[in-house]
Design a protein around this nucleic acid. Sequence first.
DNA 1: CCCACGGTGTGAGCGGTGCTAACATCGAAC
DNA 2: GTTCGATGTTAGCACCGCTCACACCGTGGG
Lengths: 198, 198
Amino acid sequence: MPSQPSRAAYHHGDLRAACLRAARELLAEEGGAGLSLRAVARRAGVSPTAPYRHFADRQSLVSAVAAEGYRELAGYLAAAHPAPETPDDLAAVAGAYVRFALERPGLFRAMFAEPCDPDHDERVAANSVVKAYVEDLVKRAFPHTGADAGDLATAVWALVHGLAFLHIDSKLDASAGVDERVRAAVHALLTVKAGNRP
Amino acid sequence: MPSQPSRAAYHHGDLRAACLRAARELLAEEGGAGLSLRAVARRAGVSPTAPYRHFADRQSLVSAVAAEGYRELAGYLAAAHPAPETPDDLAAVAGAYVRFALERPGLFRAMFAEPCDPDHDERVAANSVVKAYVEDLVKRAFPHTGADAGDLATAVWALVHGLAFLHIDSKLDASAGVDERVRAAVHALLTVKAGNRP
DNA sequence: CCCACGGTGTGAGCGGTGCTAACATCGAAC
DNA sequence: GTTCGATGTTAGCACCGCTCACACCGTGGG
């Protein structure tokens, strides 16, 4: 591999990274439909088929971008609250999850909207990081719950995941006060009177 | 318009319906990527551009299919429990929502996975039917909740929606006992002790 | 009764796309 | 210093969305 980016090089130097960056930009600018290997190649200033040296096919590129997205999401959530302990902290993290989706809808859709081959190791690894983070978070926020902690974690993840999708699909008018809305939804669910059950 | 399906007709008779049916089949067999106007035309036994007489573009076809999907979803939920009243009934309906997504992942993704033009009247109408149904359901299952009923409905919809997506993305091993898993998740969320809050 | 018209299907064709195969270039290991 | 493998290029296939000009035919005004 070339150690230095020799000027006007025949070889790009770090085409893989350039492709990922270009893919991210296209995803942000034109959405998932605009993400094509050829467009990526154009943006990277390279011939239309050069990316195939680094990605087996389009799906492979999308998976790589998605894996990046998972890692970013994990960081984003951690930044929202470094050590969430209470349900209120959890609501803050939930807000961050939805905000992440709203700020990068193209990326978020790439992460979830198309079926991905489960063989992409990097992708499943990055995904399970998010999963583990949510589970740990829920366990700390509800240490004394009688319900199975795994079930609760699943439910919480599903809740925020669903909120995110409904928002980016504009099934809920998202424009104003997303955090407030998310907080209200989480609060509403967590404070439902169990006594209502027969 | 031809009143009778004259045999070997130059005009199809009901090409629009045939296109919708073909689109549904393609969605089921090959997923969203396989749904092309040309493939639809082939399957309907018609020239590649004939569908353009009935659908302005691909997006328009997808929106029409999605609208069908929303109506079917509403019927599917209603069939799961004709008059849900208790949180347990609600869990049953939630299970139906997820089952619907798992049985028709292609259709479900078409309904939610791509951004849709909000100008497609039929589609937004069909979608709001589902929304109203969920709201009514939640109001009946939790008549005495102090929280805003709209917030709670949003939260419940988000919960089942998220569960559906996580399942069809196989983020949760869905194969066995989906209903049980969904019921457990809903139960876990609804029975969280509010007393845990500071 | 006939004919014009408009709704519907056809065909050719443009540019874009995923992907493959054969070839070109260059850095690095021997 | 030569060879070799990784990386990039070009040509080309089939398919795609979409447009335009044209063909067909049921229907309604004369």
